[in-house]
Every structure is written in structure tokens, then in C-alpha cells.
Amino acid sequence: MDVQTSTNLGNRLGNEDALGYKIIDDRALFVLCDGVGGESHGEVASALVKDSLLDDFAHHYTKDFLDEAILHAQERLLEKQKEEHENGMKTTLTVLLIEGHVAQYAHVGDSRIYHFEKDKIVSRTMDHSVAQMLVLSGDIKEKQIRNHPDRSALLRVMGMEWDEPAYSKSDRFSIGDESAFLLCSDGFWEPITEKVMMKCLKKHTCKEWLDGMNEAIEKKIKKINNADNYSAIALKIGE
């Protein structure tokens, strides 16, 4: 397994993205969160959720790990909000679990998980955002999500009261040496296209892949004033 992570401020003063991973024997967990809530509350939320998941992975690993760990992180975040009297403390979540040659992922919000096979995109998570909803309703096209006026309007996040679990979870699926994944915040996927992601991936190591994408992002955001934090975890199974 080849893993690389990167995180950047963009033009912001603080970094609200939190990311990390743990590999224990033949299982691994990758987590990336993008805090929302302004006034540095996002920072606290994303770090809390990331740490909670990685912690549970190391010490409370169970059969239904993803469900339990996500609900646990949500509980803890809501508790923290009450403690600090800060309802605004919220975050997106992307989490990828690998057990041997089986993978499964889950997400809440508009940070994404891309799955590649043989350097081509197989699937990506569907954003829990208004822009994504407009694609579903036929109002806009997929490619219009980037730069859409509703871009930052999220329908679901961690730290929002849920009537029922608001995360989306994939089925478990097999992976092999040709499999690759990219977990990234919206500040990362917005400035570059999937074409660029695949171009950078082709025949490159994770470091080269990530460097290539970061370079493309930096070029794009040079022209913007308020570029968001951009972070990613790049992972190739066979290497």
C-alpha cells in the first residue's frame, strides 16, 4: 500500500481540514474531515471527528465498525457543542475502511471519496449538497456543480441533529493491486477536474500523483482571493 497525504491553507488563515490514517495488520482506516462553522469552530469539529474514528479503529474495532464509529463520533460532536455552547461546530466526513482485500466507505457532506481502477475513475461519492441535489432534479448538469452559487450549501453534516443516520455508506467491495482511492475536501476537488486527477494518476506513485494534482490546484487558485483549504489522502493498493 502506498499512501500520501497533503493539506494546504489556500488563502485562509486557519486550516479546518483534518485528516489521518492508521494501518493495523491487514486493515486500514483513512479519514478526512472538512470543518464548517466559521470562527475556528470548524477546526475543532473536524479534528474531533477524525480523532474519534481513528481512536475507535485502534481500540474498539467491531464487526459493524463504520456504523458504530460514525454514530459515536456524531454523539461526541453534539456533546462538545453543548459543552462549548456552540451549535455551529460542524464538519463533513469521509472515511474509507480496508480489511484485507475488501473495502467499504462512508461519507457525510461534500468532501469526496473517488475510487479508481487501472487509473480510471470507477465511482465517487455523491455530495450531500444543494448543488448535487439540483443535478438529481435535472436543473443543472454534473459539470456545473463546480462554481455553482449553491456550492457551499450543505444538506447534511456531522454535528447537525439527525432524525436518522445521515451518512451514506457504500457496499463492501473487493479491491486489488490496480485499485486506488482519493479522499479530498471540496477545496481540493473544486479547482481540478476528474480528467486532471486521472492524468496525474497514470503510471505515477502516490507522491507524484498528489504533487501533480496540487500543482494543478495551485495554478487554478492563483486567480482567486479566498481559496479554501485543500487537502487529500491518496492511496494505491498495490505498490
Binding site: K90, V130, S152
Partner: peptide, 18 residues
Amino acid sequence: FTVVLKKHYAPLEQYSKT
């Protein structure tokens, strides 16, 4: 960052600025 409306009563068009 999250849409402010009564989610069980609001129609689709209230979620988007456009």
C-alpha cells in the same frame, strides 16, 4: 453552511438560491 428552513415542509425550490 447548512440550509435554513423547516425541512419537513419546504419544497425543493427553497433549498437553492437559483
